[in-house]
Amino acid sequence: MEFLDTYKEKMVPRKGSEKDFVVEIESISELFAIIDSFIVNKVRLVTITCYPEPKGDRLFLEYHFTDGPSVISLKIQVPDDKKVPSLTPKLPAAGWAEREIMDLFAVEFEGHPNPARLLIPEHMERGVYLRS
């Protein structure tokens, strides 16, 4: 994969599995440029994880992709306004993963074709996993 050459220094292997990598991405445009090259190379979207950092309030997103043997996770910090462009118009597989994160962590995915609630009832306020 072309991607592997350009990002070699930034790829950090995960603990316990030398074939799985985390790549920290600075900007959303860079993230979408990488995902475009993944779509061309048919690298499959596994899922998107959203999590608050262990100490602090910042939220992070990890887009996990796989080419079979390895899982490449693109890690990006959610901006302060909690708005991230949606991946679904490019890759329908992201649809439910994004809707789930909207329900559980109240991150807004702009341009999602169907941003209705997925897991929680219509009347419930979003961000149920942020409450403790």
């Binding site: 985390v22 899922t47 994880t49 999590y51």
Partner: peptide, 30 residues
């Protein structure tokens, strides 16, 4: 630590993403 584990369940690939924080409870389990 942040670890990923994948297994082939009868219905297809099942993935667990664990984020631990140095305590006896996970910080996040996706």
């Amino acid at each position: 630590a942040e670890t990923i584990a994948r297994v082939e369940a009868p219905r297809g690939e099942l993935i667990y993403h664990l984020i631990s924080n140095g305590t006896n409870k996970p910080h996040r389990l996706k």
